[in-house]
């Protein structure tokens, strides 16, 4: 990686990143530059390391080698600029709380230790729920929400963080069409505001329609860049192997 690059202007720079669970590499020597105001899809087959990449960016996983920079500094220093939407299935939705309370958790980082959320936090959380069209469900116990509604609550929680960068792990997994439309609209609005959004995505068909940038990942970064130049049959074949043929039929 050339040292003269102005990494502080780039929302995310990944340099020579290798992550291994025990002896098996999950990510191998990945380089990635995410330009500002982009809506980038991360696609690749199962086990390609898509979620691992996101979790490494936000410091949940320690890399074996390489580093990640957020606007030129470590994630630790720039945490307030990054919002995260985990996979919906990563939590137990039978937890005793309601939608508004979950969204309010998006403000906890800014509040810091011990300080309690107050009216300002409630308002921000309510507005975030409104943005995803869920304000009527503010009082609803979260286990009584549909999968799509739960996903929108998670998105609202990230919006409440008021960040510059949004990292989302499979937000379209098992959601209804209404939710998918609502989420895409929110993501595109974020890009309009100059925010940067990275989305782990499964549905190859919608990549050109929803996203402007794409990272093709299969342990190694096969290709990344604007969808028009990067999302090509040749690159997809290099990412998915023979399975890619199914997509072009």
């Amino acid at each position: 990686m050339a040292e003269h690059k102005n990494t502080h202007l780039l929302p995310i720079t990944v340099e020579d990143l290798t992550v291994a669970y025990r002896e098996t590499p999950v990510l191998w020597d990945v380089d990635l530059e995410v330009p500002p105001a982009t809506l980038m899809a991360i696609v690749g087959p199962n086990g390609a390391g898509k979620s691992t990449l996101i979790k490494t960016v936000i410091g949940l996983i320690e890399p074996s080698a390489g580093r990640v920079l957020v606007y030129g500094k470590t994630y630790h220093e720039q945490r307030h600029l990054v919002a995260y939407v985990p996979q919906r299935g990563s939590v137990d939705w039978d937890f005793p709380t309601n939608a508004l309370d979950v969204v309010m958790m998006g403000r906890y980082g800014a509040l810091g230790w011990v300080r309690r959320p107050g009216r300002a936090e409630r308002e921000k959380a309510y507005n975030a729920l409104k943005t995803v069209g869920m304000e009527h469900f503010a009082d609803r116990q979260i286990s009584q929400l549909s999968g799509g509604q739960q996903q929108r609550v998670f998105l609202a929680r990230a919006l409440a963080q008021e960040a510059q960068i949004y990292l989302m792990d499979e937000p379209f997994q098992g959601v209804d069409a209404t939710t998918e439309r609502a989420i895409v609209q929110v993501l595109q609005a974020l890009r309009q505001e100059g925010k940067t959004v990275l989305v782990v995505h499964h549905d190859l068909e919608t990549v050109p329609q929803y996203f402007d940038h794409v990272l093709l990942l299969n342990v190694r970064a096969v290709a990344s860049g604007p969808v028009a130049q990067t999302f090509t049959p040749a690159n997809l074949r290099r990412t998915y192997g023979s399975k890619a043929e199914m997509f072009f039929k």
Partner: peptide
Amino acid sequence: LLFWKEFKLLTFDREYAAAIGF
């Protein structure tokens, strides 16, 4: 009581708690 919000977050979504700096 003092760590009410932290314990709630930890119990509901541990990874998110770590991601936002706890």
